[in-house]
Design a protein around this nucleic acid. Sequence first.
RNA 1: GCUGCUGUAGCUCAGUGGUAGAGCGCGUCCUUGGUAAGGACGAGGUCAUGGGUUCAACCCCCAUCAGCAGCUCCA
Length: 664
Amino acid sequence: MTVLIELPDGSSLKYHKAVTPACVAADISPRLAQAALAAEVDGQPTDLTAELTQGSHRLRILTDRDEQSLQVLRHTVAHVLAQAMRRLYGREVQYTIGPPLTDDFQYGFYYDFDLPKPLGAEDLEKVEQEMRKIVAEDIPIRRTELPVEQARKRFAELGQQYKVEMIDDRARQEGLSTVSLYEQGDFLDLCRGPHLPSTGKVKVFKLLSVAGAYWRGDEARQMLTRVYGVAFFDKKQLDEHLQRIEEARKRDHRVLGRQLGLFLLSDEVGPGLPLWLPRGAIVRHELESWLRGELVKRGYQMVVTPHIGKLGLYRTSGHYPYYKESQFPPILTGTSAEGQEQGYLLKPMNCPHHVQIYKSTQRSYRELPLRLAEFGTVYRFEQSGELTGLTRVRGYCCDDAHIFCTPQQLESELESCVGLVELVLGTLELRDYRVRIGLRGPDSSKYVGEPRNWDLAEANIRSVVSALGMNFTEEPDEAAFYGPKIDFIVKDCLGREWQLGTIQVDYNIPERFGLEYVGADNAVHRPVMIHRAPFGSLERFIGILIEHFGGAFPLWLSPVQLAVLPVSEKFNDYAAEVAGSAGSAGLRVENDDTPDKIAAKIRRWTLQKVPYLLIVGAREAGARSVSVRRRGVGEVGSFPLAEAVQALREEVNSRGARAAFCKT
RNA sequence: GCUGCUGUAGCUCAGUGGUAGAGCGCGUCCUUGGUAAGGACGAGGUCAUGGGUUCAACCCCCAUCAGCAGCUCCA
């Protein structure tokens, strides 16, 4: 037998019997053998104890300096967690799955357990202690392959029903005849691996939270107890990680919303029904009026429609009764002669109203595309456990528009919608987003209309995104009930994903409402609809925006753009004059004439993240100037009052593209 | 909706089976100060709500409501 091992540096080693990566590491150097945690064989992550037989293999020994090792470490810590749970709570613990997590902002791994009694946060401390013992015991971790039947029997003997189920499924679905098991002392798990060679290689870890999770993600099945944790190779990395989470929590829009007086969620009003405070309303109004201007430039026409509509309207559209449980209960006014309930619904979407505007008159192809836009508030009865701050609410304002066009116009309209979303995200510096194409799923009862319409709409979307060269992923079962969509998705401060902008192609609603236009051929045709919202929801968008800027909005969006701070009350008159002059120039200004010292005033307005502070004292009053202090920069010098106001105006008008008082 | 945790002053949070405390904020007064906290005094709480246990509950138990983390859902 000849085993040829090629190493990353280009050198190679030859053996005449099967070897393991651990042996190779030992042959290279004792230090490497000591540092080795796992290996990569021909690009595949592998245990150090894997046998390499006849032939040539590319081998890389992984140490704590390799990215992939962290995954292996976390996977092993998950096993240590399960072993600790087993030791503490005995045979009654059913352990299910416990993978490492990639790309999760907070957590590094989890393990799901079925427990006879609940696990509280305070129990985590005990579990951690037991885990430390297991690490101290330095138990070797062994991989074995067993025939399915034998593995099944071993887990059945251990009373691990979930593992038995997993083995059965895997044997059935993947046709496997053997499965791999990992064993460390008294603990046995079904696992693909790879793992560290022994529990002693685990260094620092921390259990972070306990939560519920359905077995196999199915809410009809058992609710399991999920324990989340994180692990690193050294303490410093863990500390930095925890620090990062803490910093992220300070950016949380719910925290900043209170500190900066932007919005309020009141128990009296109801969950998921935010109230916009004066300062938050300014941000919202600025965004609205900016976008309205962009829409009008692009040939949109603004419309206004009421917050409710008759049930019949939503029966036609398909919103009611198919999505009954996610709507506020209808306002019932009676029963029709045929026994059908009659009444009104808080609108879950604006499209049925806009469709009525389209239908209000006979349409000619010459009017198309007809673009009807509205900042329309919609209401959805989201499940109570889903509500969070501004990002998931029960009543929100959609920057909605419906474009009615001919099939020939559709793709160019879609392209310009994409352009608009990109303008919105770009202007607000939200560059870290991904694009998802939401397609039909396998369950046809969730979607209205003929497959022919869907095929067409999906083809339109693919054609547009590929023409524009966009990066995207296609995801089945993410479509709207009437059509496929292009969604723009961003992450919040804790790495959770949220859909903002959306563009949807719809051949079905026009059909359900019997929409028509007269073509150049004097025949009647059916228009196509685009539903699109570049912000998506003003509430969610601003929630994300608050976190993105950490509350430090660009000047044009800042609720308070500048504060005038007199050095003492002797200069209150001049300060009032400065504030007045900025105010008449259309700047949002506060004059801080409290009796506090200047340092205290600076601190107060800095914490409020006001972009510019204008400090005035004897020197400034004499020279009719202001001393400018810029957020995040500090003092930038004194400028004549008129000049300063002019510079600030220009920064506002540029929407952040040009900063005033920049040192060149 | 489900699992777990949490709910004390406007905010952030201490606290005890014997009817409550700090810091910040707020008010008044003193100070008139030059680039991130000047000082003094004061007001402010049915300890989420409703039941129960107890001589006695903010504290223990149950329910409800709300928030947080996660799961599920999201037209």
